[in-house]
Protein backbone atom coordinates (compact mmCIF):
# COMPACT_ATOMS: atom_id res chain seq x y z
CA UNK A 1 0.00 0.00 0.00
CA UNK A 2 1.26 3.47 -0.75
CA UNK A 3 0.37 6.80 0.76
CA UNK A 4 -0.22 9.76 -1.53
CA UNK A 5 0.88 13.34 -0.96
CA UNK A 6 0.22 16.52 -2.90
CA UNK A 7 2.55 19.37 -3.73
CA UNK A 8 0.46 22.53 -3.94
CA UNK A 9 3.23 24.53 -5.59
CA UNK A 10 4.31 22.09 -8.29
CA UNK A 11 1.91 23.40 -10.94
CA UNK A 12 1.07 19.79 -11.83
CA UNK A 13 -2.67 19.01 -11.66
CA UNK A 14 -3.50 17.03 -8.49
CA UNK A 15 -4.86 13.98 -10.39
CA UNK A 16 -1.67 13.98 -12.47
CA UNK A 17 0.41 14.00 -9.29
CA UNK A 18 -1.43 10.89 -8.07
CA UNK A 19 -0.84 9.16 -11.42
CA UNK A 20 2.85 10.06 -11.31
CA UNK A 21 3.20 8.77 -7.75
CA UNK A 22 1.71 5.39 -8.71
CA UNK A 23 3.89 5.17 -11.83
CA UNK A 24 6.97 6.03 -9.80
CA UNK A 25 6.12 3.45 -7.16
CA UNK A 26 5.66 0.87 -9.92
CA UNK A 27 8.94 1.78 -11.52
CA UNK A 28 10.83 1.58 -8.24
CA UNK A 29 9.22 -1.72 -7.32
CA UNK A 30 7.44 -0.25 -4.27
CA UNK A 31 4.13 -1.36 -5.81
CA UNK A 32 3.91 -4.81 -7.34
CA UNK A 33 1.37 -6.83 -9.29
CA UNK A 34 -1.60 -7.73 -7.14
CA UNK A 35 -1.13 -4.85 -4.65
CA UNK A 36 -4.25 -2.93 -3.77
CA UNK A 37 -4.30 0.87 -4.13
CA UNK A 38 -5.96 2.85 -1.33
CA UNK A 39 -9.70 3.30 -1.89
CA UNK A 40 -11.03 6.63 -3.13
CA UNK A 41 -12.53 7.20 0.30
CA UNK A 42 -9.21 6.50 2.03
CA UNK A 43 -7.30 8.91 -0.22
CA UNK A 44 -9.94 11.59 0.15
CA UNK A 45 -10.06 11.26 3.93
CA UNK A 46 -6.28 11.49 4.06
CA UNK A 47 -5.64 14.39 1.66
CA UNK A 48 -8.93 16.33 1.96
CA UNK A 49 -9.23 16.42 -1.82
CA UNK A 50 -12.14 16.05 -4.18
CA UNK A 51 -13.16 12.39 -4.77
CA UNK A 52 -13.40 13.06 -8.52
CA UNK A 53 -9.67 13.85 -8.54
CA UNK A 54 -8.86 10.38 -7.22
CA UNK A 55 -11.36 8.63 -9.52
CA UNK A 56 -9.89 10.46 -12.49
CA UNK A 57 -6.34 9.40 -11.57
CA UNK A 58 -7.43 5.77 -11.14
CA UNK A 59 -9.31 5.86 -14.46
CA UNK A 60 -6.20 7.11 -16.21
CA UNK A 61 -4.08 4.36 -14.64
CA UNK A 62 -6.69 1.84 -15.73
CA UNK A 63 -6.59 3.17 -19.30
CA UNK A 64 -2.84 2.76 -19.26
CA UNK A 65 -3.42 -0.87 -18.27
CA UNK A 66 -1.51 -0.50 -14.99
CA UNK A 67 -4.38 -1.18 -12.61
CA UNK A 68 -7.82 -2.67 -12.75
CA UNK A 69 -10.83 -1.85 -10.63
CA UNK A 70 -12.85 -4.70 -9.15
CA UNK A 71 -16.17 -3.19 -8.06
CA UNK A 72 -16.75 -3.51 -4.36
CA UNK A 73 -13.27 -4.92 -3.76
CA UNK A 74 -10.77 -2.28 -4.78
CA UNK A 75 -8.28 -1.19 -7.40
CA UNK A 76 -5.40 -3.57 -8.00
CA UNK A 77 -2.05 -3.31 -9.73
CA UNK A 78 -2.05 -5.49 -12.84
CA UNK A 79 1.30 -4.69 -14.33
CA UNK A 80 4.62 -3.51 -13.05
CA UNK A 81 6.89 -0.94 -14.62
CA UNK A 82 9.94 -2.20 -12.78
CA UNK A 83 10.67 -4.87 -15.46
CA UNK A 84 14.27 -5.61 -16.40
CA UNK A 85 15.41 -1.98 -16.29
CA UNK A 86 15.46 -2.01 -12.48
CA UNK A 87 18.88 -3.68 -12.52
CA UNK A 88 20.26 -0.83 -14.63
CA UNK A 89 19.14 1.83 -12.11
CA UNK A 90 22.16 1.44 -9.82
CA UNK A 91 24.92 2.01 -12.39
CA UNK A 92 22.96 4.83 -14.05
CA UNK A 93 22.54 6.54 -10.71
CA UNK A 94 26.29 6.23 -10.07
CA UNK A 95 27.02 7.80 -13.47
CA UNK A 96 24.66 10.63 -12.71
CA UNK A 97 26.21 11.23 -9.30
CA UNK A 98 29.62 11.39 -10.93
CA UNK A 99 28.30 13.89 -13.46
CA UNK A 100 26.74 16.00 -10.66
CA UNK A 101 30.05 16.06 -8.77
CA UNK A 102 31.77 17.18 -11.97
CA UNK A 103 29.22 19.95 -12.52
CA UNK A 104 29.73 21.19 -8.96
CA UNK A 105 33.51 21.16 -9.36
CA UNK A 106 33.03 23.29 -12.50
CA UNK A 107 31.30 25.86 -10.28
CA UNK A 108 27.65 25.33 -11.28
CA UNK A 109 25.09 26.03 -8.58
CA UNK A 110 21.88 23.99 -8.09
CA UNK A 111 19.84 26.18 -10.36
CA UNK A 112 22.32 25.99 -13.25
CA UNK A 113 22.58 22.23 -12.85
CA UNK A 114 18.80 21.88 -13.03
CA UNK A 115 18.68 24.19 -16.05
CA UNK A 116 21.37 22.34 -18.01
CA UNK A 117 19.82 18.96 -17.17
CA UNK A 118 16.34 20.15 -18.11
CA UNK A 119 17.31 21.69 -21.43
CA UNK A 120 19.49 18.71 -22.45
CA UNK A 121 16.74 16.29 -21.45
CA UNK A 122 14.18 18.22 -23.50
CA UNK A 123 16.31 18.64 -26.61
CA UNK A 124 17.28 14.94 -26.52
CA UNK A 125 13.58 14.04 -26.32
CA UNK A 126 12.88 16.29 -29.30
CA UNK A 127 15.64 14.62 -31.35
CA UNK A 128 14.23 11.22 -30.44
CA UNK A 129 10.76 12.07 -31.67
CA UNK A 130 11.96 13.94 -34.78
Amino acid sequence: MIEFHLDGRSGVAPYQQLVQQVRRALRLGILREGDRLPTVKEVVAHLAINPNTVSKAYRELELEGLVSARPGVGTFVTRTLADNTLAAHGPLRTDLERWLAKARRAGLDEESIEAIFDSTFRSALREDTA
Binding site: V40, K41, V44, A45, H46, L47, A48, I49, N50, P51
Partner: peptide
Protein backbone atom coordinates in the same frame (compact mmCIF):
# COMPACT_ATOMS: atom_id res chain seq x y z
CA UNK B 1 -13.40 19.53 8.42
CA UNK B 2 -12.55 19.27 4.72
CA UNK B 3 -11.38 15.67 5.13
CA UNK B 4 -14.75 14.75 6.65
CA UNK B 5 -16.68 16.70 4.04
CA UNK B 6 -14.78 15.02 1.18
CA UNK B 7 -15.31 11.61 2.76
CA UNK B 8 -19.05 12.31 2.87
CA UNK B 9 -19.00 13.34 -0.80
CA UNK B 10 -17.25 10.06 -1.67
CA UNK B 11 -19.83 8.07 0.32
Amino acid sequence: FLQDLMEAVAE
